[in-house]
């Protein structure tokens, strides 16, 4: 549990970080909260030669909403997300999800950027970002670009992030007032990754579900945007048939691996249960 040797940099601007990362080449890694990377380094499964610590870059922190878009700096900690009155008002599922990540000590250091950019399928925020249809703002040597969360994840630990790029912010269209939300997560204990989890967002209109968006955590190599599950709800009154169809659609795309959390069939069924419960809770919150 002792990492190999590495160089350590602590830049104070994004431009400086991008330059350092380019100079470091393929053996350079950026460090955010460190909760994924440092354990991997201790196990020597990751052996970066250069670490570029983003914690002292002020421009990467902060939460604001402007013109119907929420922007969260990549180095905003999960604790800051939880403490944000703004998020609690306009997009409460962010707070609800962040509260289910690990434990308070970890959330004090863990960041939204680290959580979504690392490509760890166990992380909770990537599926949520897919449900919210968030966009990731990415800076590189040649400037800045945006990638949709739904297009970002390629495989476990493989993402659209290129060598030399740094995630700088997350942008989310502010959900409509009165939307319903729920992040349902089953885990073995505090600090564990999900056995399965589901993010559910929906809007109601005249007693019918106007729109629904569902994504799944830790039941595949990547977070899974359950497009068909959401579609199964849209236009219905969320009756048993519609919910069963959504659950079946979610279960159909789940491809978990067997691990200490349980065998494949169990984890698929738990994913379905999380969707079912998420729909019920989201509906109860919608107006």
């Amino acid at each position: 549990m002792i990492p190999g040797a590495f160089d350590y940099h602590r830049p104070s601007t994004v431009a400086e970080a991008v330059t350092l990362l380019a100079d470091a080449g393929e053996d350079g890694r950026v460090l955010a909260g460190g909760h994924s990377l440092i354990p991997m380094m201790k196990l020597r499964m990751a052996t970066p030669e250069t670490l570029i610590d983003l914690r002292h870059i002020d421009e990467l922190r902060g939460i604001d909403e402007n013109g119907g878009t929420i922007t969260i700096g990549a180095m905003t900690t999960q604790a800051e997300m939880i403490a944000s009155g703004l998020l609690a008002d306009v997009c409460p599922i962010l707070r609800e999800t962040a509260l289910q990540i690990a434990d308070p000590q970890i959330r004090n250091l863990g960041t939204i950027g680290g959580n979504v950019a690392n490509g760890d399928p166990g992380n909770d925020l990537p599926a949520l970002m897919q449900a919210l249809d968030a966009a990731y703002v990415i800076a590189g040597k040649s400037g800045s670009r945006e990638v949709a969360a739904r297009d970002f994840y390629e495989a476990a630990y493989f993402t659209a992030l290129q060598d030399g790029e740094v995630l700088t912010a997350i942008r989310i269209a502010t959900p409509p007032a009165g939307h319903g939300w729920a992040y349902e997560k089953q885990k073995r204990k505090i600090g564990d990754y999900a056995t399965a989890a589901a993010a559910v967002l929906l809007t109601m209109s005249g007693g019918k579900c106007a729109s629904a968006s569902i994504a799944l955590t830790n039941v595949g190599d990547t977070p899974l945007f359950a497009e068909a599950a959401g579609a199964a709800l849209a236009g219905t009154d969320l009756g048993a048939d519609a919910v069963n169809a959504a659950v079946a659609a979610a279960e159909a795309i789940a491809e978990p691996a067997e691990d200490g959390r349980g065998p494949v069939d169990f984890r698929i069924k738990v994913a379905g249960q999380m969707v079912r419960r998420g729909i019920a809770r989201a509906a109860s919150r919608a107006s």
């Binding site: 434990d103 073995r188 204990k189 505090i190 200490g260």
Partner: peptide, 26 residues
């Protein structure tokens, strides 16, 4: 929850506190 399990070729399945169940106050 606690279990030290081995696979067929003798690998320990889950030898960290992520898998080995130590309950917290919660």
């Amino acid at each position: 929850g606690q279990e030290i399990a081995y696979d067929e070729i003798g690998n320990v399945k889950g030898a960290t506190l992520l898998d080995f169940y130590l309950p917290t106050a919660v």
